[in-house]
Amino acid sequence: MIRVLVLRAPGTNCDKETARAVREAGAAAEIIHVKKLIEDTIDLLDYDGLVIPGGFSYGDRVRAGAILSAKIKSKLWDKFKEFAEDTRPVLGICNGFQVLVELGLLPGLSYGDEPVAALVPNTLARFEARWVYLKHVNRNKCIFTRSLENRVLRMPVAHAEGRFMAAADIVKRIIENDQIVFVYVKPDGSLAMGEYPYNPNGSMMDIAAICNERGNVMGLMPHPERAIYSWQLPEKISDGYADGFPIFREMVDYIRENIK
């Protein structure tokens, strides 16, 4: 059975629906508190995939994702690094994306002490909770989106700090390396070009999701786990899956093909 670890920390609040999404995609999902990993009663390397779900880990103290990242860096870094370098899939959703950026696993161009990117407060200076349109722009590097081509997807965002920011040279490398996965677009699929509310946070280049150089680590601000079934859509269609589901299905398919 494929085993995916859904990481829980104090303040995580999207762990249950994330685990359900993983299960719906055909893997066993286990919600594990970071404390268990630190105590070494659970070994991350026994799992095939990792999801860091949304929420407010450690109450967003210092800044979003900073404390969980510091704990991982000081107590669990070798395991996390090995897990990611072993090309096992790592998915960070919302707060999880913030953690991956703080850790340096994203954009993953270096593992220095300092993050080279940030998810800063939204331009409009408020919490944005709304459905957005995303266009898949990755050219087949990201393992979570291999079937998506140039589809436009709908998922909800819910964050106050989601504006992707990095220095110009980092952004250049992210583009050259095919590390942008989703951008915010208008309903017709044309680029949001920073226009609110299509780009809900003022993110550079309308970036909503990026992956690392190998494509096995992805972070995104929108919540795919809140768009698994069509009845979760605003129009509440009774049957079928919604646009967030393929991300989890691709993760599990990738594990089946490459890890197991």
């Binding site: 900073a66 404390i67 860096k73 300092e114 993050p115 990117a117 940030a118 800063v120 220095a167």
Partner: peptide, 11 residues
């Protein structure tokens, strides 16, 4: 500061 208190991209 570098390792926890500050993200130099924004702070």
């Amino acid at each position: 500061c570098r390792r926890l208190l500050v993200n130099p991209v924004k702070d």
